[in-house]
Design a protein around this nucleic acid. Structure first.
Lengths: 137, 137
DNA sequence: ATGCCTGCAAAGCTTTTGCAGATGC
DNA sequence: GCATCTGCAAAAGCTTTGCAGGCAT
């Protein structure tokens, strides 16, 4: 994701947009709520408004640069679109997110949709639970 | 779902609870938002507050009598727990919901979770799109 | 009788929007 | 220079909560 992506989406290259882009590209964490990003920006001395964070994320989503996930728990989380579809396992204990992809499931989804005359434009599959190595709070 | 279910959940048998129970049991529609239920009650001359609807639904959920789904679009929807797990196809055009169940997918989910040391307590799988016989607005 | 319930209104949270000034191109 | 963008504050939408009176048992 580069400034060129912004331009081709008709978006001007501004500080808030590039900063948010950088955060989403960080390799340590991949799923951020708008609030997460806002706090990250503030703690790094980038005085960017929360409203701007929401606006930028919505624009990025519209441009296909990020994906929005509505996991349980109220806040939506955003993730960089890397072109590789995947689903999620979300720990309800720690919030940890693991991505996975399974050919068998993807294929069955298409088959089942076809059987019911349904055209899939999008899908979400999220497993909630916890990892075996996570201990009780 | 009967008044006995309410009692064993430690809930008193009251008018709001039985009315909401009846609505959820209606065979024509299975997925209701709190607002849907509220409007239904009002239009049938049951002056029950929206807050009560939310409270009752939360209690039913806690008692395992209903399931809450967070589909796209802000509002949560509630569905009677009939003991048969299933997933959903949701039309983004009409809001129509189709339930389905697939053994292959369920099995793969368990296998994948096991591979990653993950214990599933719950999962949601929702396909978004539209049905072939639905026409453009 | 008493403890659980309900309605109303108010508050809480996340997200969106209006507006005036600031900034990218 | 001009359109787009941003920050702030206000508003909006969904859901929860406090409280005083009402109801089930």
């Amino acid at each position: 994701m580069t400034t060129a992506d912004l331009k081709s989406a008709g978006l001007k290259v501004t500080l808030p947009r590039t900063k948010i882009m950088e955060i989403l590209e960080a390799s340590d964490k991949k799923h951020y709520s708008a609030e997460d990003i806002y706090k990250h920006l503030i703690s790094h001395n980038n005085d960017i408004g929360l409203a701007t964070v929401y606006r930028v994320l919505a624009q990025f989503e519209k441009a296909g640069l990020v994906q929005r996930h509505n996991f349980e728990g109220g806040q939506a989380v955003f993730e960089l679109e890397r072109g590789e579809h995947h689903d999620h396992m979300v720990s309800l204990k720690t919030g940890k997110v693991l991505e996975f992809y399974d050919e068998v499931i993807e294929k069955r989804q298409q088959e089942l949709a076809a059987e019911h005359g349904f055209v899939i434009t999008d899908h979400s599959m999220t497993l909630y639970g916890h990892f075996e190595d996570e201990h009780e709070h």
